[in-house]
Amino acid sequence: SIVTKIISIVQERQNMDDGAPVKTRDIADAAGLSIYQVRLYLEQLHDVGVLEKVNAGKGVPGLWRLL
């Protein structure tokens, strides 16, 4: 499923980069989806406690990390 793919992308990127959070844009590119589509999935995963959003604010790139 797309959700499983997104989780594995975040996991893979974090492992490659010493646990650093992953940008929404990088996840979207790797999943082959638009940034808006991916954001909806990321928000859902956040709501159920799978991911945390590391930063927030208007015009700030979203950074995500697995919990």
Rank of each mutant, 00 (worst) to 15 (best):
R13T: 03
I9A: 06
A31R: 01
G57T: 07
P21H: 04
E52T: 06
V10I: 15
E52P: 01
R13Y: 11
G32V: 03
D29Y: 12
I6G: 00
K23E: 07
H46F: 09
N15Y: 10
Y36R: 14
R65N: 04
A56G: 12
K5G: 03
V50Y: 05
E52L: 06
N15V: 09
Q44G: 07
S8W: 12
L66D: 02
Q11G: 08
I9D: 00
H46E: 10
N55Y: 14
E52N: 03
L33N: 03
V3Q: 08
R39G: 08
K53L: 08
N55G: 10
T4M: 13
H46D: 02
N55D: 12
A20L: 08
Q44M: 15
L63T: 08
S1T: 10
G57V: 06
V50L: 10
Q37G: 04
G62I: 15
D29I: 13
L63G: 15
A31C: 12
D47H: 14
G57M: 06
Q11S: 10
M16Y: 08
L63A: 13
M16P: 03
A30Y: 05
E43G: 05
Q14S: 09
L67P: 12
T24H: 01
L67F: 09
K58G: 09
L66G: 01
Y41A: 05
I2C: 09
D17R: 14
R39H: 07
G57I: 06
G62Y: 15
E43I: 07
V3G: 04
G32D: 14
V48P: 00
K53I: 05
P21S: 07
I2W: 13
V54H: 03
A31M: 14
N15P: 02
E12C: 14
Q14D: 03
W64F: 01
E52V: 09
L63V: 05
V60F: 11
A30L: 07
S1N: 10
L67W: 09
V3D: 02
K5Y: 08
R65E: 03
I6S: 00
E12S: 09
W64L: 00
V3H: 10
D18Q: 12
V38Y: 00
K23G: 09
K53Q: 06
N15G: 10
K53F: 06
L51D: 00
A28P: 00
V3P: 03
N15R: 12
D47P: 01
L45W: 01
S1P: 07
N55L: 07
L67S: 13
I6F: 02
Q14E: 05
V60E: 15
E12N: 09
V54E: 02
V10W: 02
S1E: 12
A30Q: 08
E12H: 12
A56P: 11
V60R: 13
T4E: 12
L42K: 00
S1W: 13
V54N: 01
R13S: 04
A30T: 05
M16W: 07
R39S: 13
V10D: 00
Y41S: 01
I2Y: 07
R25S: 12
S8H: 11
P21T: 05
V54Q: 02
L63W: 07
S34F: 15
D17H: 15
D17V: 11
K53Y: 10
T4N: 13
P61L: 12
V3A: 09
G62T: 15
Q14Y: 07
G57C: 07
G57N: 07
V48H: 11
V54P: 01
I27C: 01
I35A: 05
G57Q: 07
Y36S: 12
I2N: 04
N15Q: 11
R25V: 10
Q14M: 14
R65A: 07
V38I: 09
Q14N: 06
I27V: 06
A28G: 03
G32W: 03
D18G: 14
K53V: 04
D29L: 12
S8E: 10
I7Y: 05
N55S: 12
I7H: 02
A31K: 01
I7W: 05
D18Y: 13
I27R: 01
G59Y: 06
T4A: 14
K53A: 04
K58Q: 12
L66I: 12
Q44W: 15
G49Y: 03
Q14A: 07
G32S: 06
L33W: 03
D29A: 12
E43P: 01
A31D: 01
W64Y: 02
S1Y: 10
S1M: 10
G59A: 06
Q11N: 08
G49D: 02
D26G: 01
L45D: 00
E12Y: 13
Q14R: 03
A56W: 08
Y36C: 10
Q44N: 07
K53N: 14
V50D: 06
T24M: 03
V60K: 14
A20S: 08
N15C: 15
L67C: 14
G62H: 15
N15D: 09
G59L: 05
G59V: 04
T24N: 01
V54I: 09
R39W: 10
D18A: 11
A56H: 11
S34A: 06
G49F: 03
W64S: 00
I7C: 05
V50A: 04
G62E: 15
L45G: 14
D18M: 11
V54F: 05
P21A: 14
K23S: 15
V60I: 10
K53E: 06
G57Y: 06
A30K: 06
E43N: 10
V22F: 09
V50I: 14
G32Q: 06
D47F: 12
L40I: 14
L51F: 04
Q44S: 09
D29F: 11
L66H: 04
S8Y: 10
P21F: 08
I27A: 00
R39T: 14
Q37N: 06
V38S: 03
V10A: 02
Y41G: 02
R65Q: 06
E43D: 08
G32E: 05
V54Y: 05
Q37E: 12
I2K: 03
P61R: 11
S8P: 00
Q14V: 05
E43K: 09
R13A: 07
W64E: 00
D26H: 06
I7E: 01
S34G: 07
S1G: 11
Y36P: 11
D47I: 12
K5T: 08
I9F: 15
A28T: 01
G57S: 07
Y41V: 12
L42S: 00
V54L: 05
Q44E: 09
V48N: 12
S1A: 13
T4P: 05
G57F: 05
S1H: 12
G19K: 06
G49S: 02
G32Y: 03
H46I: 07
K5W: 10
Q37K: 12
G32L: 04
W64D: 01
N55M: 08
L42Y: 01
S8Q: 13
Q37L: 14
Y41N: 00
G57K: 09
W64I: 01
A20D: 08
L40S: 07
E12G: 06
Q14C: 06
I6V: 03
L51W: 02
L33H: 01
K53M: 06
R39E: 12
V48K: 13
D17T: 15
S8M: 12
D47T: 13
G19E: 04
I35N: 15
I6Q: 00
A20Q: 11
T24C: 04
L51C: 02
L45H: 02
G49C: 04
